[in-house]
Amino acid sequence: MPEVMFAGPDGRLEGRYHHSKQSNAPLALVLHPHPLHGGTMNNRITYAMYRSFEKLGFSVMRFNFRGVGRSQGKYDGGIGEIADAAGALDWMQMVNPNSSGLWIAGYSFGAFVGMQLLMRRPEISGWISVAPPAGYFDFGFLAPCPCGGLMVAGDNDELAAEPAIRKLVEKLNTQKNVTVDYRVFAGADHIFANHADSVSEALEDHVTKKMAAKSAALALAAD
């Protein structure tokens, strides 16, 4: 889990990066919660998702947004943080020119940034959004959403209320060629205190199924 420092749009950014032994391994970028509310790349759910992607054979990075930890710059209301995430993707793609896919995962504020990045980077093939703050941020920009993904909510979440997330999921599922895998954990609050393992299991199950479906489609096309 080597430490990396890479150039961001507003100074150097601090990350942790796992490089897969497979030369064409897919990539995953994991984004942490709100910088002004204690969010860092070492957040428990962020770390759990990072380890899940590592377990699945991905080359994966988590990093600190500007102004967090040893990352330079200061909080920019989400706009600069989207640029930070794009810079992290650029670095990963430079290191992995033969990667076979690209996933974006985010928790809370990181989920909002991740979905914004999804709309800007057509090469992203899958996404994970844990507790997206759908009642706080406007997710109307997902029109149309380029692909389906996994959305996770807790039914006892006081900050990212489940009804608002469900409404977003229902809206996305009306779009052509988009299917959202929606999973709600009973009793989970915003920090998923007793549900980190459940988040990891959901991610691994969803990604494994999507990757298997992709492989099957490629094999069918080759016949």
Score class of each variant (00 low, 15 high):
2 P>C: 07
2 P>D: 15
6 F>S: 05
8 G>F: 10
8 G>A: 03
11 G>K: 06
12 R>L: 13
13 L>V: 09
15 G>T: 05
18 H>S: 11
18 H>Y: 15
23 S>N: 05
24 N>C: 00
25 A>N: 02
27 L>R: 04
29 L>K: 03
32 H>E: 01
33 P>Q: 06
33 P>A: 09
35 P>V: 12
37 H>Q: 11
39 G>Q: 00
42 N>C: 02
42 N>R: 11
44 R>I: 03
46 T>M: 08
47 Y>K: 12
47 Y>C: 00
52 S>R: 12
52 S>N: 00
53 F>V: 04
55 K>L: 12
56 L>P: 03
58 F>K: 07
58 F>L: 08
59 S>W: 01
59 S>G: 00
60 V>C: 05
64 N>D: 09
65 F>P: 02
67 G>C: 04
68 V>S: 04
68 V>H: 02
69 G>L: 07
72 Q>S: 12
74 K>M: 11
78 G>C: 09
82 I>L: 14
83 A>C: 05
83 A>E: 15
89 L>D: 03
93 Q>F: 00
93 Q>E: 15
95 V>D: 11
102 L>Q: 01
102 L>H: 02
102 L>R: 10
102 L>N: 03
109 F>L: 06
110 G>S: 02
113 V>I: 15
113 V>D: 00
120 R>F: 03
120 R>Y: 05
120 R>M: 13
122 P>H: 11
125 S>K: 04
128 I>Y: 03
129 S>A: 15
131 A>H: 05
139 F>Y: 14
140 G>F: 12
143 A>S: 15
145 C>S: 14
145 C>E: 06
146 P>N: 08
149 G>M: 11
152 V>F: 10
153 A>E: 01
159 L>K: 10
159 L>D: 07
160 A>W: 03
160 A>Q: 02
162 E>C: 00
163 P>W: 08
167 K>G: 08
168 L>P: 00
169 V>K: 03
175 Q>T: 11
176 K>H: 14
179 T>W: 00
181 D>Y: 14
181 D>F: 12
181 D>T: 12
184 V>W: 01
185 F>S: 02
186 A>E: 14
187 G>L: 01
190 H>W: 05
191 I>W: 14
193 A>T: 13
197 D>L: 12
199 V>A: 01
199 V>F: 08
200 S>F: 06
203 L>E: 02
205 D>P: 01
206 H>E: 03
206 H>M: 02
211 M>K: 07
213 A>E: 15
215 S>Q: 14
221 A>S: 14
